[in-house]
Design a protein around this nucleic acid. Sequence first.
DNA 1: AAACCGTGGAC
DNA 2: TGTCCAAGGTT
Length: 365
Amino acid sequence: MFPSLLLRWYKKHARTLPWRGHHDAYAVWVSEIMLQQTRVEAVIPYFERWMDRFPSVRALAEASEQDVLNLWEGLGYYSRARNLHKAARVIMDEFGGQLPRSVEALRKLPGIGRYTAAAIASMAFGLDEPTLDGNIRRVYARIFNVDVPADSTAGEKLLWQIAAENLPRGKAGDYNQALMDLGAMVCLPKNPRCESCPLKIHCTAFQLGVQESRPILKPKAEIPHHINAAAILVGRIGNPPIHAVLLNQRPSRGLLGGMWEFPSGQIQIAPAKSLPKILKESYSLNIRVSEELMVVHHAYTHFRVTVHAFRCELLSKSKNEFLKWVKLSELDDYPMGKVDRQIAQKIKHQLESQSSTLGKSRVRK
DNA sequence: AAACCGTGGAC
DNA sequence: TGTCCAAGGTT
C-alpha cells in the first residue's frame, strides 16, 4: 500500500546527508549515535570533524577519552561519546575491527539500543529490520490514528508491530530513512504539511482532522530550578609563571560525566556565604570569596540552574586528586559543558586584557 | 515505570 | 519568554 508510495516520494525528495551513500558501517554507526535526540543540522559539522579525526574504528579505539570528549563538546549527552569510544575498543578486540552484522550482536555494544541496532542493520547491511524513532512513531501514529500514548509500553509495542508489518522486504534501509525524512520535512510535530504529503490518502488521523493531536504522549514531570555557586581560583604555574585556573574533573557517570568544571556546588540562598562551606565539604578546599564575576542561567532537560561564579582566593592547598591547575592557554583542551565553557571564556578574556594592560603600562615607563 | 542524560532551534 | 522537542539509551 503506502510503502511503495513513500519509496517513490523518497527517490525524489531524499535529503543529501554526509553519511548517506557512505556504505561504510562505521560512518552509519557514528551518524546514528550523533543523531540520537539531536537535529541533523547540529550533527553535520560534528560528523565531518569526527570522520576527519577518527576515520575508522581503529582510529577511534586508539584515541584517548579526553580527545573523544573534546571533539564531542557542545553536542550534549556525553555518555554517547564515551560509549562510542568503549564500543570501538570492543569491536577491535572481539570483532577484528568490523561491526557485527546482526541486531542481536549490535545491541550488546554500549550505546546501541533497539532503534540504533535496527537502523545500522538495515542501512549499512541491507537487512530486513524495521525500526522506530521519534519521526517514525509520529508518522505511524497518524497514519493508523494510534490513540493510546505512543510513549507507553502498550503504545510502543503496537508501533513496533506496525513497523514490522509494513516493512517492504529488501528495501528496509531506504524505507526506514524515507519514514524519517517524511517525519522531518512533511509530517512535522506542529503544523504538518499534510497537503504535500504522499501518504495523505492513507492517513487516518488526517482524514479525521486530528493529525495535530497525534501522537498522544504522556504528561511530563515539572522540572526543578537549582541555584549553584562556582569558584574561580586563579594561580600561576610554570616558569616563567603563567596564569592558571583550578578545575575539577567530574565523575565518569551522571551529568556531564568525565567533563571538567570549576569547583562548584548546589546551594539554597546567599551564594557568596555558602560557597566556602560547600567547597570544604565537597573538595576539601579552603577558600575566601572575593567578588562575583558573572551569573549564568541554563536549562538542562530535567532541571534549570542559575550559576553564580565568584573569584576566590585559596587559603590552603588541597590534595584532591580530581583537581588540577590548568593554564589559560590550554583551557580548550579540557572538555567542558556549556556553562563552564562560558565561565572559562570570560575568565580568559579578563585575565588576558589585564596582563596586556599591565604589559603596556610597563613598556611606557 | 520513571528518572536521568545537553543543547539549540522553532514557535 | 517559556515551552516543546529532536535519527534514544541506560539504570
